[in-house]
Structure formats: C-alpha cells, structure tokens
Amino acid sequence: MTTMVATATPTVRVNVIRYAALTAKVLLFALLLSALIWPDLSGIKGKASTARLIVYPIGAMALPLWWWAYGRARSKLHDRYPWPADLLMTLPWLIDLIGNRLNLFDTVNWWDDAMHFILWGFLTAGVLLAFAPRNLSRGLTAFVALGFGATAAVVWEIGEYFAFVRNSTELQTAYTDTLGDLALGTLGALLAGLILYQTRARVAR
C-alpha cells in the first residue's frame, strides 16, 4: 500500500502541473484574442500591443515547438515532456497581460519592479529546467542563469524602447527605469538559478 501511494503521488503532482500549464496557455491565448477583438480594453493599447501579440504566443509556445521538433527524438535520454518548465515559461506572459488588463502597472507603484524580478525568475527557472543539464554545479548554474536572465532582460528593454518608449512620455525617465528593470530582472534570474540548484540537489539525495 505504501509503495502504491508513493508511486501515485508523483503522478498526481505531474497531472496537476500539466493541467496548470495548459490552463495558463488557454488563458493567455484568450486574453490575446480579446486584445485583438477589443483593443481599447486590453490594457496594452499604446504599449507595443502588436509586438506583444506576436512575441507572447512565441514565448509561450517555444518549448512545446522545440519538444515537438527535437525533444521527442531524445526522449530516451531525457524525462517526459517538462511540464513544470512549460508552466514557468508561460506564466510571465500571462501575468504580464493580466497586470496590464487590470492596469496594475500604472496604478500600483511597486508592481512593475516586482514583475521584472518575479517574472524574470519564472522565465529563467523554466529555461534552465528545460535545457540546462541537471549535473551543473552551483557556480555554473548561477552563471547560466545570469547569462540567460541578463541577456533576455537587455533584449526586452531594447524591444520596449523601439516599440513604444521612445515615442511616449516615459522617455524622460526611461534611463533610470531601464537600469532598475535590468538590475531586478538579473537578480530575479540569479535567485531562480540558485533555488533551482538547491531543489535539484535536494531531490538527488
């Protein structure tokens, strides 16, 4: 009986995470569709809405598309489809859209800073879970997390600048805001890498 319970528990956990990842994707695409139908209510009008409508689906589907193209062929060397990574790589896009829909970025002073820290942590953890070898040392895990997180943060800020910041009232404070966003995103990525290392080390014991 004990063995059956121990076997069933991981299966239940995997199913919960899988359904959570699928639900997050459904909600994300529902919000994107509603932004196309009712752009004035989307919360992203005037905030590079066209770019977001392109980038967000790509971000959410990058891992499934990679798995379909390459991951399945290496399934004997890897675990089954990485649903935890999928969930972590979908949540940043979904939470950002929800935050914009509820106008939290413009009405809550600390919301933007918190999102750069937390969402970059989610994204980095998801990428490392999906693609980084499990046997990386703590130092290498930190370097990989920093490398991905900092690079992604820079690309995001450059995209924001050319997409809408340079033609908006935010340009006056863009330099200070960008530096803060880069720092928070990088720190979030580093923390995510360290937490992932500790989690993997504890599971491996």
Results as ranks from 00 to 15, higher is better:
residue 1 M to Y: 09
residue 6 A to K: 14
residue 7 T to C: 11
residue 10 P to S: 00
residue 10 P to C: 02
residue 12 V to I: 13
residue 12 V to A: 13
residue 15 N to K: 15
residue 16 V to K: 03
residue 16 V to E: 01
residue 16 V to A: 09
residue 18 R to A: 11
residue 21 A to Q: 04
residue 25 K to S: 14
residue 25 K to E: 14
residue 25 K to M: 15
residue 27 L to H: 01
residue 28 L to D: 10
residue 28 L to I: 08
residue 29 F to R: 04
residue 30 A to K: 02
residue 33 L to R: 00
residue 36 L to H: 11
residue 36 L to F: 14
residue 41 L to I: 03
residue 41 L to D: 14
residue 42 S to R: 05
residue 42 S to I: 08
residue 44 I to Q: 00
residue 45 K to N: 07
residue 47 K to F: 15
residue 48 A to P: 09
residue 49 S to W: 14
residue 50 T to L: 02
residue 51 A to G: 00
residue 51 A to Q: 09
residue 52 R to Y: 11
residue 52 R to H: 13
residue 53 L to P: 01
residue 53 L to H: 03
residue 61 M to P: 09
residue 63 L to P: 00
residue 64 P to Y: 13
residue 65 L to F: 12
residue 69 A to G: 11
residue 71 G to Y: 07
residue 81 Y to L: 05
residue 82 P to K: 09
residue 84 P to W: 09
residue 87 L to V: 05
residue 90 T to F: 04
residue 91 L to G: 07
residue 92 P to Q: 09
residue 93 W to T: 13
residue 93 W to M: 15
residue 95 I to A: 06
residue 95 I to R: 03
residue 101 R to N: 10
residue 102 L to Y: 11
residue 107 T to H: 08
residue 107 T to Y: 09
residue 107 T to V: 00
residue 107 T to Q: 05
residue 108 V to E: 08
residue 109 N to R: 11
residue 111 W to P: 10
residue 111 W to L: 11
residue 112 D to R: 00
residue 113 D to P: 03
residue 114 A to P: 07
residue 121 G to E: 07
residue 123 L to P: 03
residue 123 L to A: 08
residue 124 T to F: 10
residue 125 A to E: 03
residue 125 A to C: 12
residue 128 L to Q: 00
residue 130 A to Y: 01
residue 131 F to H: 01
residue 131 F to T: 01
residue 134 R to K: 13
residue 134 R to D: 13
residue 134 R to A: 14
residue 137 S to N: 10
residue 139 G to Q: 10
residue 142 A to T: 11
residue 142 A to D: 05
residue 143 F to K: 06
residue 147 G to A: 05
residue 147 G to T: 07
residue 148 F to K: 05
residue 149 G to N: 01
residue 149 G to P: 02
residue 151 T to S: 15
residue 151 T to I: 05
residue 152 A to V: 01
residue 159 G to E: 06
residue 159 G to I: 05
residue 162 F to I: 10
residue 168 S to D: 09
residue 175 Y to M: 15
residue 176 T to Q: 14
residue 178 T to D: 04
residue 178 T to N: 09
residue 179 L to W: 00
residue 180 G to D: 08
residue 182 L to Q: 07
residue 188 G to L: 11
residue 188 G to W: 00
residue 189 A to M: 04
residue 191 L to G: 01
residue 194 L to M: 12
residue 195 I to Y: 06
residue 197 Y to A: 07
residue 197 Y to L: 12
residue 198 Q to G: 15
residue 200 R to M: 04
residue 201 A to N: 12
residue 202 R to M: 07
residue 203 V to Q: 13
residue 204 A to E: 03
residue 205 R to W: 10
